[in-house]
Design a protein around this nucleic acid. Structure first.
Lengths: 337, 337
DNA sequence: CAGGTTATGGCAATCGCTTGCCATAACCTT
DNA sequence: AAGGTTATGGCAAGCGATTGCCATAACCTG
């Protein structure tokens, strides 16, 4: 793929100077309409395509953003992440940004990596899908201006990073309220990975809401696992072994819920009659299984879009102070509860 | 994010020439061990990070590949694609390549786009996940050397593109054989999007195998749709309206199968007793729904990995002629059939 | 019509790294 | 010890586009 046509070629062909050609192509108002038309015609004729690397070097910019995702390689991907990515790509495209994707291995966040990508001009900004805390100290940027990094799905404003998140708490409040409204008084909580951001917040939301309703004594936390189907299935075993089984199960995420339902039904229990089940995320699949899962549907793609918009605002200097955007989930009441 | 340290800084600090510093960092054998150590130490001290854009311009290379995916924005993503992407990222990382992702809007493949990315040095090579035919003519490269583009999931060797695919036909042969072995003699085929590569091949595989078994008269094609859950659900309605319902349903993909199962079960039919259902793809979810879906599990992530390896081989000049790699799916017999 | 704007195009430095080619020094051979 | 290698580092020319600054020409204004 040898680079064929350069600005120099166009310059020679048009008899103009390289700089004029460059301006004709990138600064519409800077040259006369006539000149611009000429250059454009010749460029089209010759099939000029420009050299991005040269532009990047010269401008010190790449028009590229990176999404740094957790565990993206080496294990299953959460469909939620995929949806976020879809939103990201969508919005990036309409803003004229390219998107690179890279994975980080989880906690602790490889701040050094982040900084490297930024510093060596690989990308202009980063959309961080963190699993754990962003260790600002590692960056050695404690005093400098905030780096162009937006946290997605995690509220890291306390660390100085703009963030766009879902109102998970509200989602779980809605779930709890719905279940309580159905008359349930005992609740299993099928946990995600212990200690992890989402798990911690979701459990807290459930517990607090139950407490507010005076039902905290009915809460039975059950070990789950890494937000996947198999962990939910395994959790069902623990649930079944309980002396007094709660009548409802609130799962930390949809994958756990689906696995859990599969587990209890295999043991002969009926959902929702023997145990009502609710999840969180709103994966497509939840609507097409039997019984269809009641779940809080999170606007994942929109989160991705908002993240990109925010990063773009940041890069263009339209905002400077860390900001928080949080999007509300919507409860989808279906058969399982 | 101002670029701070450059090779010039290191050169000054070490008293060496820029070129020597550059070599110390990138051509281990080219300088004395002592010099290298010195440079490395100073580089570490100063936190040198290099400027990728400059390197790219100078080397005429980007060490970046692009995955060009269909419909990635604007509509639901197939989990299969996600899995492929996972494999791609995984392998790319271990080969030291970055990956950009970009979407194309389907047929016809935007060959011009492809060429632009290649020509303007945005990326070194492309992993094309095509939906339709690759229009070689558009590229205007009919005579030139093959561009560094690998087709993934579609055999485009006939167009001169190396490809890595799944042996879909074998997968469907296995499905048909399994169903026939169970005693089924009438088969509904729930179709994907009409005319689309996968749909065409899969249907042909089913029909041919049934013919080979002398069971072709039992085949009833049923309109499905764009490889998603809702289409499968809708197809169930058509299936139910049939005068004589086949006893087995072969679905073009898992999403269709899941939607289909949901549809027929909602109508009171039992799977597999009233109708056996089988899919293709091997999505995680198929094992955790009731009834668990019998399906041909395609090694999607491995396809992604193999694609990247092949592209890398191509870029490094280890292969030049178009090649075809095809990976076998594995039949997972579960409850639905 | 003189003095002052404004529009347009050219010059050349610059972005930071890479690499072919050359010079030097050190080390062999016979 | 003379001629020949080999290892190491420096020089400088790129890679291709961008952009601040300047020169010129065209156009105003009173």
């Amino acid at each position: 793929m040898a680079q064929r046509i350069t600005l120099a070629d166009l310059a020679e062909k048009t008899g103009l100077n390289i700089s004029t050609v460059s301006r004709a192509l990138t600064r519409p108002g800077r040259v006369s309409a006539e000149t611009r038309r000429l250059v454009e015609k010749v460029a089209a004729d010759l099939g000029y395509m420009g050299n991005i690397a040269a532009r990047n070097l010269s401008r010190g910019t790449t028009e590229t953003i990176m999404v740094l995702a957790p565990n993206f390689t080496g294990q299953a991907i959460s469909p939620v992440f995929t949806e976020v990515l879809l939103g990201v790509c969508d919005e990036a495209e309409s803003l004229g940004l390219s998107v690179m994707i890279h994975s980080h291995t989880g906690q602790p966040i490889p701040t050094a990596d982040v900084m490297r990508f930024l510093h060596n001009h690989t990308v202009d900004g980063i959309l961080l899908i963190a699993t754990e805390k962003w260790d600002r100290a590692v960056a050695g940027h404690k005093d400098g201006p905030a780096p162009p990094v937006i946290s997605v799905m995690h509220d890291l404003t306390s660390e100085g990073l703009s963030s766009v998140v879902a109102q998970e708490e509200e989602g779980f409040v809605a779930v709890v309220d719905h279940l309580a409204g159905l008359g349930h008084r005992s609740f299993a909580y099928i946990a995600g990975l212990p200690g992890v951001y989402h798990e911690v917040r979701r459990y807290a939301a459930v517990r607090d809401r139950l407490t507010a309703l005076g039902l905290q004594d009915g809460l039975v936390p059950i070990e789950g696992g890494p937000f996947d189907l198999a962990s939910g299935f395994a959790a069902a075993g623990r649930f079944l072994a309980l002396d007094q089984r709660p009548t409802a199960a609130i799962c930390c995420c949809d994958a756990l819920a689906i696995g859990f339902m599969q587990g209890v039904r295999q043991a002969g229990l009926s959902v929702p009659d023997d145990v009502a089940v609710a999840g969180y995320d709103g994966l497509d699949y939840t609507a097409f299984i039997t019984p269809a899962l009641t779940t809080a549907v999170q606007p994942s793609a929109e989160i991705g879009r908002a993240g990109v918009r925010m990063l773009d605002d940041f890069l263009k200097g339209r905002i400077t102070a860390p900001r928080l955007v949080s999007l509300a989930p919507r409860l989808a009441v279906r058969e399982s509860a």
